[in-house]
Amino acid sequence: MLEFRLVQGSLLKKVMEAIKDLVTDANFECSSTGFSLQAMDSSHVALVALLLRSEGFEHYRCDRNLSMGMNLNNMSKMLKCAGNDDIITIKADDGGDIVTFMFESPSQDKISDFEMKLMDISSEQLGIPESEYQSIVRMPAAEFQRICKDLSSIGDTVIISVTKEGVKFSTRGDIGSANIVCRQNTSVDKPEEATVIEMKEPVSLTFALRYMNSFTKATPLSNSVSLSMSSDLPLVVEYKIADMGYLRFYLAPKIED
């Protein structure tokens, strides 16, 4: 059987809100390492990878590796019934066809349990190689969200270019064009407010803004976001989940016809 107890249950609620519109059904993999998920959107343009390490849970028991197929919209409906301060426990039996979500209020005066049917989902697991990226930009997550939102009111695609001057986000549409340049800025009070540009080589890639905007639904998970780019690889947009792991989005670039 498996049983995970997450004191900061709101993390799981935030993860679901970040991915449920991108991915419909997914297999959650449970092992002694942690609770993870890898899934592509229906058009195979974006891939989501989630890892919540076992050490981040107050209690984590997983007797054997288990794959749980869930409809994310249904899972989100269940998790919305948990209060933001609730402790969430996930339980399932080996070979069973249900998962139980238990919500405990902080004062322990309200305990709810919700059972959800599991699904058989055939999904392709992709090997994601460890890569050295040509450029990595770390910036405040709220700033990145604002840029994606602003640019999508003007164009459908964004060109992200990293040079020694900084990172430039450009778009063009029927009404005109826009360029937003963010320079490295490490002289801030809090590290999460910094913009840090690690450039080994300049890189310039084009992406669909629709997906970028979808990824920014993960903004409540982390103060900062990192964008890893190489000319021959998908973009990686990573939100670190404090003390537990990460939520990563991979986005295939637009390429020359």
Partner: peptide, 14 residues
């Protein structure tokens, strides 16, 4: 704007 590529062009099945 170019053609949209897919993730499977870059990462292969395991």
């Amino acid at each position: 704007d170019g053609k949209q590529s897919t993730i499977t062009r870059f990462f292969s099945k395991v």
